[in-house]
Design a protein around this nucleic acid. Structure first.
Length: 576
RNA sequence: GCGCCCGUAGCUCAGCUGGAUAGAGCACAGGAUUUCUAAUCCUGCGGUCAGAGGUUCGAAUCCUCUCGGGCGCGCCA
């Protein structure tokens, strides 16, 4: 699409005595396909030329000769509109869609991006809310890779803190009572709950927890041994879930990884003369960059802080990976914290800090009916949690039911379990991309388990149907003459295909994977509209040449759809 | 009080680098399968784009203010 905009601008610019890039920036897509594919509004010229915009449009159009890649240049009201030639359109879509670099680009070639995402506090299972950072980050890592970036994904696990002291207290307490508490992730959750029960009956347990954490910090053998077990088991639990979601990480460098690196960072800040004493703590003041709250580097007791840790992590990532960009896929709530951290990095003289970006997203709460009649936020302690795994399982179960109701043949029936996993999980993943990331999300079971209309299963179903037609046709589309695909509906599908590469680029430049979801929904809607018009668009017909052309179109759509689904992390089932 | 974000159809959301009658899905009412998968498609219903000013030939889109909602505002991460 971009190439066509450029071509149109190059034709227009000399006729208008304007420069190409200015003209290019003014181009837009007409609201209706019959108006043309690219439009140039003439309003701005009206004043200068002292003529009415429609008149200008007429005169400009008359001056231009339609030539490849355009079949027609015509005035439509106050616009000069371009119609892309069938030949050019096909060359840019069908001919490319099956190649391995469809939707890929080299815009990020030679550049490295670090993406920090998911990063949960461990020692308890993932809740539904973790799906936000996890899926947005995973999709971004695939999108950046598709644009040629070298991608380093990091899971900055919350694997350090007093909560481990709490687990140890509950663990030891259970042992003393002659029980074997277990250490896997579910046991850890139980320990967490048990600790809070203990603490409620006797506040002294709180001190014990602090004591155990202190032991851990001091390298006490037993504390370290338990901590390691908890962390390992936690990661093991996480990874089985990540595997279902198609999520992987290059690095599991959690908070504890920086324990021995923060002192040096704090010293560097001090050496650069940025540290000031304030309320008995050491801070970097940021009023000069418009942030009233200083960044806390050392607490009153001299200990380093959350901010120090993130500063350390940023330095480490830069020295280790040499990133051009470092994305933090972290909820909105931490906006101030990241502004502080990035500002301090800049004050430290790191010009690479410009590449650090907080990819924030809105909060997830639970809708009325999920926990009582009110909308609520999650709280593990109050039992107001929905575990991600449970959501997945429930969705898979629902998918299974639908599959068993609709199974069209034994093959589908026999693979029901496997298929249900793809569809059920796909439905959940897709809900994450149903809105721009900045919007707050209200979780409801209805929305999460929706498999009709705009949903993951809708896309997957379309994909299965596409493949079914291809299979049935049994045709080799080599040498297909796609110039026959000139009906309004067919052209609509071709135009939609044309949008795929630009959607990928835009998703990356805005760090917004939902753009891909929106695009795929549109592609499928346009295709399905054509597909269901059996009267005029039956794909497999007696006309061999026509069939060949139409199957080639189906292949192009299928390829685009499966590419797009993969970018978002959804499976593309062959049958359903 | 200050800062960031959000406010578009009954509900959930697109559209927001300004342009041609504001688009989808859900819900509701109808309809489509003697031909490629009905988890589909079509038709209808439904909008003071939170409100008020301003900039502009043109504003859902940009600016200002107001209202409503979410989040944050140093020793939890």
């Amino acid at each position: 699409m971009k190439a066509f905009y450029r071509a149109a601008a190059e034709l227009l610019a000399p006729a208008l005595e304007m420069d190409v890039s200015t003209v290019e920036g003014m181009l837009l897509r007409p609201p209706k396909p019959e108006m043309g594919d690219i439009g140039f509004p003439c309003f701005t010229l009206a004043k200068e030329l002292k003529k009415a915009p429609p008149q200008i449009a007429g005169e400009v159009s008359a001056k231009l000769q339609a030539a490849e890649p355009f079949a027609e240049i015509k005035p439509v009201g106050p616009y000069v509109n371009f119609v892309i030639s069938q030949k050019a359109l096909i060359a840019a879509t069908i001919d490319k869609a099956l190649s391995s670099d469809w939707g890929r680009s080299d815009s990020g070639a030679g550049k490295t991006v670090v993406i920090d995402y998911s990063s949960p506090n461990i020692a308890k299972p993932l809740g539904v809310h973790h799906i936000r950072s996890t899926m947005i980050g995973a999709a971004l890592s695939r999108l950046y890779a598709a644009c040629g970036w070298k991608v380093e994904t990091v899971n900055h696990l919350g694997d350090w803190g007093t909560n481990f002291g709490q687990l140890m207290v509950a663990y030891k307490n259970a042992e003393e009572n002659g029980k074997n508490p277990g250490t896997d992730i579910d046991s850890q959750l139980k320990l967490y709950v048990e600790f809070h029960d203990l603490k409620d009956s006797n506040p002294a347990y709180e001190d014990q927890a602090r004591g155990w954490f202190k032991k851990l910090e001091d390298g006490d053998e037993e504390a370290v041994r338990l901590w390691k077990i908890f962390v390992d088991e936690s990661i093991k639990g996480l990874q089985t879930l990540y595997a279902r979601l198609n999520v992987t990480f290059d690095h599991y460098t959690g908070e504890s990884f920086f324990n021995d690196k923060m002192e040096a960072t704090a010293k560097r800040i001090e050496e650069k003369g940025l540290l000031e004493e304030s309320e008995d703590a050491l801070v970097v003041k940021l009023e000069d960059v418009g942030i009233d709250t200083p960044c806390l580097i050392r607490k009153t007791d001299g200990a380093t802080t959350y901010a120090t840790r993130d500063l350390s992590a940023a330095e480490y990532r830069q020295s280790e990976y040499g990133f051009n960009k470092c994305l933090y896929v972290v909820a909105n709530q931490q906006e101030l914290h990241f502004r502080q951290v990035f500002s301090v990095l800049k004050k430290m003289g790191y010009d690479w800090a410009e590449g650090c970006e907080h990819v924030k997203f809105g909060m997830l709460s639970f809708g009325a009916g999920v926990f009582g009649e009110e909308r609520t936020t999650g709280s593990t302690r109050k039992g107001n949690v929905i575990f991600l795994e449970d959501v997945l399982n429930r969705s898979v179960a629902k998918a299974r039911e639908i599959i068993e109701d609709n199974a069209r043949d034994d093959e589908v029936k026999n693979s029901a379990a496997e298929l249900a996993e793809k569809v059920g999980v796909g439905a959940i993943i897709f809900t994450e991309f149903m809105q721009r990331r900045m919007k707050d999300v209200v979780f409801t079971w209805d929305k999460a388990l929706n498999m009709q209309g705009e949903s993951g299963p809708y896309l997957q179903y379309t994909h299965a149907r596409l493949l079914s037609v291809i299979r049935k046709s049994g045709i080799d589309t080599n040498g297909a003459d796609a110039s026959k695909l000139a009906s309004t509906l067919e052209r609509g599908v071709l135009m939609s295909l044309l949008d795929f590469p630009a959607s990928v680029e835009r998703a990356v430049s805005e760090n917004e994977p939902s753009i891909i979801a929106e695009y795929l929904l549109e592609l499928c809607a346009v295709f399905n509209r054509m597909y269901s018009d059996k009267k005029n668009h039956q794909i497999i017909t007696d006309d061999e040449a026509l069939t060949k052309a139409r199957v080639a179109l189906v292949e192009a759509v299928r390829s685009t759809l499966s590419n797009g689904l993969a970018l978002l992390g959804l499976a593309a089932p062959e049958k359903m």
